[in-house]
Amino acid sequence: MFPSTFDYVRAGSVAEAISILDGSEDAKLIAGGHSLLPLMKLRLAAPSTLVDIGRLSELSFIEDRGDHVAIGALTRHRDLETSAVLKNSVPILSHVAGEVGDPAVRHRGTIGGSIAHGDGASDLPAAVLALDATMVVRSAAGERTVPATSFFKGFLETDLAQGEVLTEIRVPKTSGGWSYKKFNRRAQDWAIVGVAVVRNGSTRISLVNMGSTPLRASASENAINQGASIEEAAHLASEGIDPPSDLNASAEYRRHLASVLVRRALQEASA
């Protein structure tokens, strides 16, 4: 398990990281390293340069900003899990962060790293999707914001272009019920299927590991928001969705699980 040879640069600021990315065709940012390094060790990824932003403390924060909470991209999962601000204002996010991997992973991994990696099987991308969060992206050209619904583009592919750095995630505060159902065989694993439900005015439902990106269960959402019963809505969980088959679950079983978990999550969020 040795990665191919690569150059390593530790960036002293976001601006410096951006300028290094701009000068390279395939440089990759690294923060906690918990998504990228395994790919590199398996030689499924071989960036020529790693730009280490892990020590940019300016990007590690959780701030109450009135109607939303702003989270720095380099905030560790463990800090989300234990944040009083999140527990109070966006409790599902704090809960989901506590479901990621194991304690070692949670002390190293960062929310920005997880979201920028854009893995459809990861917990946090689905959580920010259900929360209708907004990503703040910086580049040499300035800053732009991207809603979560248009951030995740494909398998390990996001709206981030080369030369752009995800710096902040803005999460609307929630006041209604919520639930996160993570189904797996071992505690530290990725979800075989996961379901996040946020009731904040309307109900939003997102799915983990039901596709190459985190997905919204639109048919279920529409049904429940138009007054259908939880059972009826849950039946529609995988409508229009083409889940993967792998060692842990066939597509057919994933569809079944999605229905069961959406029902359970809606019940819990409504309780």
């Binding site: 065989r185 071992r186 505690a187 530290q188 694993d189 060692l247």
Partner: peptide, 14 residues
């Protein structure tokens, strides 16, 4: 199942 992500050795949590 050639990695420990795919070959499910259980831990104390299970």
């Amino acid at each position: 199942s050639a990695t420990l992500a795919d070959y499910l050795v259980p831990s104390a949590a299970e």
